[in-house]
Design a protein around this nucleic acid. Structure first.
Lengths: 149, 149
DNA sequence: AGGGTCAGGTCGATGGCGTCCACGGACTGT
DNA sequence: ACAGTCCGTGGACGCCATCGACCTGACCCT
């Protein structure tokens, strides 16, 4: 990960569809050299993939919420995780420090669907309680992280 | 947004670097037709861009935290937002229902940097208090949303 | 010091791709 | 019926991705 790799990562974070030729121009290398560097960044796991950034509201997912989950004492965390993973609408899931073992970011179409989702969550064995916070608007999301190393 | 557009969005969500020729093969259209459809999805704002998905830990951002912010009574929300936006490390920011006006997702390199970030947040005029929850691990993140419409 | 090895670059060739343009069929409103 | 519009196809052309061959400098071992 030298300075050129860093620039490549930043460029691709900004626009994942840049051609290798364009990347090459930006970093002052030949196109095959860039091709090889990017390939190595991918297989090293630095670049995990390339995603289109889709506006959730434009595809009928207008409701965003964060749901904290408290586990039962003696719950099997792996089972809970599996159940969470099976639920559509849970876009992100973190294992947290604190009383609430999990924090989930959910995206659904309507408040009614959010209600259904919460009911389903409460029905998962091992989950003692849920706490939901609804986002009224997204100020920004997934801003390109500034790379330190 | 017909079924073909939907497929295109899903394909690009999975891999933003697919060629137009490949997309065309998958949906059974010609490459120029796909090119035009994708262009329209972009200018309609359905596709906001294309981003490389970078592993935060691989670039020195091993600490993820969620910070809820309570505003002072009489705080200027726009000013607070501006101050938040100026802070590096705050990757996402939502305006929330509830006592905590904002929920921020922060990504930094170390716990010490998180401490600094929280101190800075508390120093922003208009912010009464902060509440931080630290993620111990990320189970998944930004799972491709299932498109309903 | 000298030579082997390797990582990482350039260059050139070639096949495929992006992109532009002209053209054509199906709907729609008049 | 007819013109206009939308949305597609096919062909052409230049650029790009990708591969192989070769070059160079750093490093190590003797």
């Amino acid at each position: 990960m030298d300075a050129i790799d860093l620039t490549l990562v930043e460029l691709l974070q900004g626009n994942a569809r840049l051609s290798y030729a364009e990347l090459a121009r930006q970093v002052g290398l030949s196109s095959p050299a860039v091709h090889e560097r990017v390939g190595k960044l991918e297989s090293a796991g630095v670049i995990r993939g390339y995603r289109a950034d889709v506006d959730p509201e434009a595809v009928g997912l207008g409701v965003t919420a964060f749901i904290g989950l408290v586990e039962d004492s003696g719950a099997d965390t792996d089972d809970v995780l599996e159940a969470l993973r099976a639920m559509p609408g849970i876009e992100s899931c973190y294992f947290m420090a604190g009383v609430e073992s999990f924090l989930c970011m959910a995206r659904v179409g309507t408040i009614a669907q959010l209600e259904q989702l919460i009911l389903q969550l409460n029905r998962i064995p091992g989950i003692a309680s849920t706490r939901t916070a609804i986002a009224l608007s997204t100020k920004w999301e997934d801003r390109p992280q500034q790379i330190t190393s």
